[in-house]
Design a protein around this nucleic acid. Structure first.
Lengths: 149, 149
DNA sequence: TCATTATATTACCACACGGTAGTAGAAGAC
DNA sequence: GTCTTCTACTACCGTGTGGTAATATAATGA
């Protein structure tokens, strides 16, 4: 007999509630912004921010805006993504405050809202480069060990 | 007649292919790590990195490890998450290279693999704080405008 | 007015993922 | 040996989301 359970009532999932706008750091330790002192609300905000940047298509769009503001058609051309798709991603990026929207006649131009974003991306890039280098070093060590015996 | 389309063959989706380990920056501009010079592979790597940090539960785990290495049971107690859940997240965090695993007897201890991570989180925290402040300022301006007329 | 261009929205599908219960396995304790 | 504890894994459900085609809307031009 297969161990197949079906139609069992699934318990309510343990998700964090959405926040609106409350305090972001626990009161105790001054204005320091260490992650360990964050309230669950702030963590949720942070997770949402990361989520926006966690898709290749959206990163492509961000990249294409590094050189300066572009309208939707230009973004579509540069990224090769579909129109509806780009529109959806731009909406998400706008709502997240990553890009800013500006209508000029028929066209709508988008630009990076906060240049700080690139600083952040560069930092991530550094971390990833470090990781890749570490990995390749470990691989080299491993293959040297296997040759020596 | 309802405009209901059903059972239409859906075209192959335009997803970026997974990478294994190729060059991360386009050759042209030296070793500078600006995001605009990244190959699609590097963008995918970057997206994956952000995705790992885009869930509240995983951020909670990262937070709980800021004070130092902890075993799984301790993490469960501190975060209040389910055991299977924590185990799954820890696996993901380990594979992403965010945390490191170390077995000590029966227990398994996890720690943050690269303290750089906190620097990054602090930066994000700054950006978010900035955004929240901007938003609240704009709201204040708006309400002032509405009072004045 | 009608056609065209640019952007947004909707409905839909396939798939990924978070959470859970249950199970498995490994290491000590007895 | 058996029992307990700790961790990992599997199967499952529900939901979220990326992509697409089709449609809607709005501005401009003929």
């Amino acid at each position: 007999m297969p161990t197949k359970l079906s139609k069992k009532p699934v318990a309510v999932q343990e998700r964090a509630p959405k926040l609106v706008d409350t305090k972001l750091v626990d009161a105790k330790a001054g204005d320091e912004c260490g992650i360990s002192k964050l309230t669950p609300e702030a963590l949720s905000l942070m997770a949402d921010f990361f989520k926006v940047l966690s898709e290749v298509s959206r990163l492509q769009i961000v990249c294409s805006l590094k050189a300066g503001a572009k309208n939707v058609t230009e973004i579509i051309e540069e990224t090769g993504l579909g129109q509806a798709n780009v529109s959806k991603h731009l909406k998400m990026l706008t709502q997240a405050g990553v890009v800013a929207r500006e209508q000029r006649g028929v066209c709508v131009y988008y630009r990076i809202a906060n240049p700080f974003l690139f600083e952040l991306c560069d930092l991530v890039c550094d971390v990833l480069t470090m990781q890749v280098e570490q990995q390749s070093q470990q691989l080299q060590q491993l293959s040297r060990l296997r040759q020596n015996r």
